[in-house]
Simulated scan of single mutants.
Amino acid sequence: MDSPEVTFTLAYLVFAVCFVFTPNEFHAAGLTVQNLLSGWLGSEDAAFVPFHLRRTAATLLCHSLLPLGYYVGVCLAASEKRFHSPAWRLFLLLAVTLPAVACILIYYWSRDRWARHPLARTLALYALPQSGWQAVASSINTEFRRIDKFATGAPGARVIVTDVWVMKVTTYRVHVAQQQDVHLTVTESRQHELSPDSNLPVQLLTIRVASANPAVQAFDIRSWRPA
């Protein structure tokens, strides 16, 4: 029979992978950062930008705590063992360092009302001289509340298109580009015999979204189309 340490390690590994990549079963059970911290995060529909400022910070912190959670859990699961070897001490140091670094980074982001967050810094590139990134954020919030927006993709790689903006929401970041400034380039095309939703052959296209402003980071989106 497997030892408690091995059993817990395998179980925790499955949990950690599912918690980070959140399959449908975890979404249905509410085991996501968005659901567990919904009271603090607020509503995406009501305030898209503030929601994702907090969500990316909370996700980074929660994921950074996973190694420490494993160390505490394995110590409890195999309490008869002594985890004092150099390897375990190094792991504990790493497990404590990760959330400490995450907290420092989140504190830096949150200064000046989140003005140093990567999303806020990107929005500031589109702000008029007499305004700030908050004005751009307010415009995005308003557009996201409209029913005519287009949204598709998995939660960890969601693509949202409004009248003015093209956005990609990932686990740790939100990429934003203004439609009138972007250049779309197909960088990869893959042929698949069957699509996820039908029995017809399809192509999976990887499209590079690059802004005319070199300070705005380019990002990739994926799209299915009939072959």
Rank of each mutant, 00 (worst) to 15 (best):
129 P>C: 12
128 L>D: 05
101 V>H: 00
91 F>R: 00
126 Y>D: 05
91 F>N: 00
88 W>S: 07
104 I>S: 04
117 H>E: 06
94 L>Y: 15
115 A>D: 10
99 P>S: 03
117 H>A: 03
125 L>F: 12
112 D>E: 08
80 E>N: 10
127 A>T: 03
87 A>M: 10
107 Y>F: 11
112 D>S: 15
114 W>G: 07
80 E>W: 13
98 L>T: 02
113 R>Y: 13
121 R>Y: 04
104 I>Y: 12
90 L>I: 10
84 H>F: 14
108 Y>L: 08
119 L>C: 08
81 K>S: 05
95 A>C: 04
103 C>D: 13
116 R>T: 08
116 R>F: 15
116 R>I: 14
100 A>L: 09
103 C>S: 10
106 I>F: 12
108 Y>V: 11
130 Q>F: 09
87 A>L: 11
106 I>A: 10
117 H>N: 11
105 L>F: 04
126 Y>G: 03
118 P>R: 09
105 L>G: 01
95 A>M: 03
117 H>R: 13
116 R>C: 06
124 A>D: 05
118 P>N: 06
92 L>A: 10
124 A>V: 00
98 L>C: 02
109 W>R: 12
115 A>Q: 10
87 A>K: 06
110 S>P: 14
97 T>S: 09
100 A>C: 07
83 F>D: 03
87 A>F: 13
95 A>P: 03
88 W>Y: 14
96 V>H: 05
82 R>D: 08
103 C>H: 06
106 I>W: 11
93 L>F: 14
96 V>I: 11
109 W>Q: 14
122 T>M: 05
99 P>T: 04
110 S>R: 05
121 R>Q: 08
107 Y>Q: 15
99 P>Y: 04
82 R>G: 04
112 D>K: 08
113 R>L: 13
102 A>F: 07
88 W>Q: 12
89 R>D: 01
112 D>T: 10
109 W>P: 06
127 A>H: 02
125 L>G: 04
125 L>W: 06
111 R>L: 15
104 I>M: 09
128 L>S: 03
116 R>M: 09
84 H>Q: 02
99 P>F: 04
84 H>L: 11
89 R>N: 07
109 W>V: 04
130 Q>D: 13
87 A>G: 15
89 R>I: 01
108 Y>I: 06
85 S>F: 07
90 L>C: 10
98 L>P: 02
102 A>H: 07
125 L>M: 10
94 L>P: 05
105 L>H: 06
94 L>F: 15
128 L>I: 03
123 L>E: 02
80 E>C: 11
116 R>L: 13
111 R>S: 13
112 D>L: 12
107 Y>N: 15
120 A>D: 01
82 R>K: 14
91 F>P: 02
100 A>W: 10
106 I>T: 11
111 R>F: 07
128 L>W: 06
89 R>P: 02
83 F>R: 02
106 I>K: 10
120 A>S: 06
109 W>E: 04
129 P>R: 00
84 H>T: 14
121 R>E: 00
108 Y>A: 14
106 I>E: 05
88 W>C: 13
94 L>N: 06
124 A>L: 00
125 L>V: 12
80 E>G: 12
97 T>C: 14
87 A>R: 09
91 F>S: 01
90 L>E: 07
93 L>R: 02
90 L>W: 09
